[in-house]
Design a protein around this nucleic acid. Structure first.
Lengths: 228, 228
DNA sequence: TTGGCTAATATGTCTAGACATATACCAAGT
DNA sequence: ACTTGGTATATGTCTAGACATATTAGCCAA
């Protein structure tokens, strides 16, 4: 029976977990491991590259490979389209477009998008419903430059979904905070003002520059879950 | 000049962003691309494998490679040791061990760890300080089975840090919620009860089973930031 | 002692060819 | 019409060997 790179990865991981190779310690080189396991060096390389990507080991040319001393744990968050998130929970999805207007955006918004202060942006307020109950209140500022000439009707398809299918999103960032529900949020979501809400703020850039800034206020009790 | 796998990845990504290859569309096979770019098929494979891991394309044997229709955006969260998180913000770090006792844990805690209901766990309350001000209030239940016989003194080293350096952590999950500050949290962190706090709950398992459940209540205004 | 050059070395990547594996598609049989 | 089974095909992985590149350790000169 011949070993594959996943077997090599598993065995190396086992030795690290078993503390055969302690945190911070140097582990044998690729050549040595390839001889020991009876595989080609490329196979060992594949395994170690995967482990390095996972943050378990640190590799440096000439210096060799060592077990990460303070392993930075990495969790991966998968950001689904809200509709699929709701459907995935087994509940019917719906949404209401509450506001849709064009006008100058607040300074913090244009600043985050890297646009001039007075840039007019399309402002959309959408309430996403899960089983008929408020799920997420979305406030979005959208750069009209990314929209095609007959602009899509966001009453039919949520802006969220239209963007991921029609605009190439290149990079962005997301931040989570806990904030008290504003008067507007409280009214729309049917909670008391000041209720703690999990808020996600996302900025997205595409090939042609700034695309959108979204603020998603989640219904009380919402959990954002990740595994590592 | 000869191309590397990163060049291939960049060019494929460019074509996807430029919509030469639309979402959902099939792209040429590895063999065809290797001929076009003048590289070995393994090089194309390396590039496409990386893109598939990033969620940009979907690959299936026999069926070929297609551009992801609804690209699931993935953000990576790096979970640092709290001390390094604080120091990384340029502030001095300190912590206080407020509580350290052994006793039966609440049912939700044992349930999450997959332990019998009455299991006695070590309960630690730690207040992490950033520049002398409350930063994170940590409530931790720790499986005493993972501790060595002369148990470490968590007044000297935070449990957080001792665990990552001394116990092999295999898997776990983390969830974020927004919750009102409890009376205890309000008192310890110097805020009003009911203040929205960003709460992270983490369960961790090691090679020898359940290790720990932590609840981290972050000071108001705290942001958990991710990039994609 | 310090600064910089050089050689040794471990990882990073590429190639060409081969075999493995999953599966879409089609054809044959019920 | 439906099921079953074979086959072609695209991706997945491995090997052996080579060259590239970063970086450290040691040496030598100012």
């Amino acid at each position: 029976m011949t070993l594959g790179w996943e077997d090599v990865r598993a065995e190396v991981l086992r030795r690290i977990h078993a503390r055969d190779w302690a945190p911070g310690a140097l582990i044998p080189g690729e050549e040595a491991l390839s001889v020991e396991f009876g595989v080609a060096r490329a196979t060992v390389n594949r395994a170690l590259t995967a482990l390095a990507e996972a943050g378990v080991i640190e590799r440096k040319k000439r210096a060799g490979t060592r077990v990460a001393a303070l392993p930075v744990r990495r969790a991966r968050l998968e950001i689904p389209v809200i509709r699929l998130d709701v459907l995935g929970r087994g509940l019917p999805y719906d949404f209401d477009l509450l506001t849709d207007q064009l006008g100058p955006a607040p300074v913090p918004v244009t600043a985050r998008l890297g646009l001039p202060e007075a840039t007019p942006l399309r402002y959309l307020e959408t309430l996403h419903l899960s089983g008929g109950r408020p799920f997420v209140f979305e406030a979005r500022w959208l750069n009209p430059a990314v929209l095609p000439d007959p602009a899509p009707d966001f009453a039919d398809i949520s802006a969220n979904e239209w963007l991921v299918t029609h605009v190439s999103l290149v990079s962005g960032d997301i931040a989570f905070t806990a904030e008290p529900a504003s008067l507007r949020e409280a009214e729309v979501m049917g909670v008391d003002p000041g209720t703690p809400l999990l808020v996600a703020e996302r900025t997205t850039h595409g090939t042609a520059g700034a695309v959108t800034f979204v603020r998603l206020a989640h219904a009380p009790g919402h959990r954002v879950q990740m595994t590592f």
